[in-house]
Design a protein around this nucleic acid. Structure first.
Lengths: 201, 201
DNA sequence: TGAATACGTTAATGACCGTTAACCTGCTGG
DNA sequence: CCAGCAGGTTAACGGTCATTAACGTATTCA
């Protein structure tokens, strides 16, 4: 992991606050004045940094799917201990993202339809590729699992891993590490069950 | 299941179309004129049936959580074959809902924050009770699972089961029955894995 | 019959909000 | 030293949109 020591640029501040607000109240539910206020400048000042409100959302969503996709590809490339270890690595990466960037995860599947056509296409393409990464890996681990089933299972596990934002604010959570471990087990268990032969009645 | 033979009232038509539109483009992304047009009347005509746009969303969300809660309680009351069968019954009920009322499931965790305080409180309370229903049942099936873990697992499984709206339109799905069966297996597998002792390295 | 009621209509109102215009200030490099 | 740019400001414009007003029509029923 690359840890940054330098201060975030104004642009980055804006993106972060915009992500928080969009996640809280929805894209249309937040005004540019509020986003400005959140970083200490006022409404129209944002236009020195972004072409418009849409552009902020686009940059956020493209950034998210790109990051997921990049991380996934890196893990695939670095895989040296077989498909099982790779699957664990993918799961771990996704969990880190879900736990550390709740706002982005929320936006990711909530505001996609508010994008311009071209941006939406790009994001969807990245998402699809990311899914394919997982599907391929899952099918190597569980060859008996038919492809359409594997795809549904992958989507379902994404839903499972992305469920953390729905938890009442980090209150009585078992602690970040324990939560991550639990989610990991849940995901692995789901895949394993999908692949298992139907149990006799 | 109670099957209705009589035609839906205008009110119900409106609610259904509003649900579809809200799910597609978000509460703030849909105008009252569009909702009206979807049922063949125009904008302000809706005010003969609802106090306002907010009221429609409120009725939808309260209805959803109420329905989930009622169905859950009924299943608990009817349970006669032990906790395992009850858990299966709860899972089955939730899957039916997720597959048959995609729009409502989508709204359910996307637009909650657009509600008036009192309505939001009511919905959240119903949701919490529904979760508790599940948590109790899960803990009977897996007594070794600590309560906070069970709660996280239940939320995660909801995310898993609610993932169907994210699937590209009912295209290459394995068919409704097969999808339901697969989701069921995934959910059971996830719970089982949560309860299993940590596997030795 | 005829009054009330249910269910629409179109036009107007008023608020909100994204965006642009016009203007200001301080730093920075030639 | 001053030109130019980066990064702000407030005020104004224009469109969208929920809601209300005012009005019409058919059905019901006493």
């Amino acid at each position: 992991m690359v840890t940054r020591t330098d201060a975030p640029t104004r642009r980055e501040q804006i993106l972060q606050e915009a992500a928080r607000l969009f996640a809280e109240r929805g894209f249309h539910g937040v005004g540019v004045d509020e986003i400005g206020a959140a970083v200490g400048i006022s409404g129209p000042g944002l236009y020195r940094h972004f072409a418009g409100k849409d552009a902020m959302l686009a940059e956020l969503l493209v950034g998210i799917s790109g990051q997921l996709m990049t991380g996934g590809k890196r893990r695939v490339a670095e895989a040296q201990h077989g498909p099982v270890a790779l699957l664990d690595s993918l799961i771990e990466g996704h969990i880190d993202f879900a736990l550390d960037d709740r706002d982005l995860i929320t936006l990711h599947d909530r505001e996609l339809d508010r994008l311009r056509d071209s941006d939406r296409k790009l994001v969807r393409q990245l998402q699809r590729q990311y899914v394919e990464l997982w599907v391929e890996c899952v099918r190597k681990v569980y060859p008996e699992l038919a492809e359409p089933h594997a795809r549904v299972a992958v989507h379902a596990v994404f839903g499972l891993l992305n469920s953390t934002p729905h938890l009442s604010r980090p209150s009585s959570l078992p602690g970040r590490a324990a939560t991550a471990a639990l989610l990991h087990k849940l995901a692995r268990g789901a895949f394993a069950a999908a692949a298992a032969q139907d149990a006799p009645e």
